[in-house]
Design a protein around this nucleic acid. Structure first.
Lengths: 361, 361
DNA sequence: CTGAAAGCGCTTACAG
DNA sequence: CTGAAAGCGCTTACAG
């Protein structure tokens, strides 16, 4: 079903009155091909007229290159990965590559691997699904395909492409501290995940550096419900924080729901800042202050890193240095009270009028 | 960079002491291959031991088939497409196919087309980006690659794979009407889009069938801000509706923000039901009643339809008959007032206590 | 500067 | 039941 009935190299050669090898040469060796200018022009013109497109299968068979990259993502649904994928797909296209995508839910890792790598479909692979125990780690290191880990690093691999997650946490901490908060806490992601732990570490680091106490940390999966429950623990703790950093947007939505439910006001009683931004953050009942990350750039960088390896450069870590960006909205403000207190049992919604019972200093 | 240094067919043949063609035969013609059982077993065993994997490039070159499908989506970010893609990727994997994804933002349609189709990379293509004027429509119909339109239909193409969008609208209308609403309206998507128009038509149809007046309709892009504004028009209209159907989740979040801003309560003053469900809908300040669609199934069905074409069956429309499902949450309730009124100018948030100034009948 | 040949790793009639 | 040959559409030394 492929280009069987479309123009082949020989068609171009025939039409231009030259040997196929000559056509191949002008189509490839760009300038340094020893081909007479007029011949080259003629061939190029014919190829254009005929809308000739080389068959990548045939070329790949000969050159042992497919102009295809594979990418393994933990979840196609997660908008964060969608954005990384998009950056990667577009950069790949710019370089003449095409992307094959597979969801690596670990149950089918080996199958995806066989299909992409063992069947020789790809020139390199981007792994966004690294996690402790994921079989992909073995597969990839026991193979000869070029590869790169994106977003979630694998320590010691020397082929990580990642963002400044720590700086995101630091930025969040500095924002809250700058607002006057001293009782800080965070809802972290699963700390076994490289990204989650760096976000958390950066936040804690900046808080401690500012001379404040090590912030409380509750761990939760990267989704609404888990964060709802984790936030519940924070809100009911004796030393209830006034400023909380949440590790992704889904968590933030769950956390916000929890705060609302417990009758506290955001940001009056509790300031909330989240890692990850999205247009919808602006339209929530209290628009979320967020930290925007260069996700598309990250995806593009992973392609560049892979292409470098294929060009023969040794693999190396690459940090996307674009700084995390604070998107200021309404969920953070100076604390209205510095002395931690337990929440009132009343449940009066999350309205945003002036505060009641404020102990502002 | 491909399987150049991995085991080839000849390696298996050599190890099994047979001719390569024999190996190929047992690996392919499944049962009906005229091969002595013991030979076949021996070959199979060797192939397994050597972990032999056929090189798809070589096979594809010979058979003119790549075991790869292409897919064009309007936006990789949109969770709806993410879910369709996921369904497609998984079904493709089940059938031994791999998926190449490209974002069809129309500016690069031709480029993506060249890369996927003209270069002979794929056996068929799934188009999720159909829209009036999109150049893909010409490309696809002027070509010989098997293809299918998914989600957004192209009338008359005879190769649409789609869901019962109309039934979603009907379900929404019936739910609101069942609750006692008589003043209905809808925030529709861009009506030039097949999906948007079917959602809208189904809703209007059910409303009129119930003997009620044709519901007001405002059109908005499929995102928060546009819906926020469109909803504003509805809320300020003289005949303010008490029940509104919104055409996707992003719109619903924008619409909810608008209602909140105008000082109306959901569902007391205004019931809201949305097309599209997502875990986060449950965690909004008022959990959204939603209509869940079989998106993954839709993606899988598009792969099946394409595979059928490749098997030689004529192209045909296929409807995914799984019924839209009502996910009942808190944003819909019986109307507290049947006589439309203009909103009060006060802005007292969107709390959910008992109503004030109710004209219940 | 250009042509002729070999070969990438498969599959598939065709012999025998 | 199995082998030998040709060929898919390219690229790339090697001649000349």
């Amino acid at each position: 079903m492929t280009a069987r009935n479309s123009i082949r190299l020989v068609d171009v050669a025939r039409a231009a009155g030259v040997h196929p090898s000559t056509v191949s040469r002008v189509l490839h060796d760009s300038d340094r091909a020893a081909v007479r200018p007029e011949t080259r022009e003629r061939i190029l013109a014919v190829a254009r007229d005929l809308r000739y497109r080389p068959n990548v299968l045939a070329r790949g068979l000969k050159t042992a290159a497919t102009a295809t990259f594979g990418m393994l993502v933990p979840s196609l649904r997660n908008p964060v990965y969608a954005e990384i994928v998009r950056g990667a797909v577009n950069e790949a296209a710019r370089r003449g590559y095409v992307m094959v995508l597979a969801e690596d839910d670990s149950a089918v890792t080996e199958q995806a691997w066989d299909r992409l790598v063992e069947e020789g479909r790809i020139d390199g692979i981007i792994v966004a699904s690294a996690a402790p125990g994921n079989p992909i780690l073995q597969l990839v290191s026991g193979s000869r395909v070029p590869y790169v880990f994106v977003n979630r690093r694998v320590p010691g691999s020397g082929r990580n492409v990642y963002m400044r997650e720590g700086d995101a946490g630091r930025l969040a901490a500095e924002h809250l501290i700058g607002l006057g908060h001293i009782a800080l806490a965070q809802v972290a992601g699963p700390l076994g995940l490289d990204t989650a732990s760096r976000r958390a570490a950066g936040f804690a680091d900046a808080v401690v550096s500012a001379g404040l106490q090590l912030p409380a940390l509750v761990e939760a999966p990267f989704e609404e419900r888990g964060a709802f429950e984790a936030m519940g623990r924070l809100v009911q703790s004796r030393a209830r924080p006034t400023g909380v950093y949440v590790s992704n947007l889904n968590q933030a939505i769950g956390a916000l729901a929890c705060v609302r439910r417990s009758g506290l006001r955001v940001p009056g009683d509790l300031s909330l800042i989240t890692y990850d931004d999205d247009p919808l953050a602006e339209f929530l009942e209290v628009p979320l202050t967020a930290i925007r990350m260069p996700l598309g750039e990250l995806g593009a960088a992973s392609i560049s890193a892979l292409a470098d390896q294929i060009d023969g450069q040794p693999a190396r870590d690459v940090e996307v240095t674009t700084a995390p960006e604070l998107v200021l909205r309404s969920s953070t403000s100076p604390p209205e009270r510095l002395i931690p207190a337990t929440p009132s049992p009343s449940s009066n919604g999350g309205e945003q009028q002036s505060g009641i019972g404020v102990d502002q200093q």
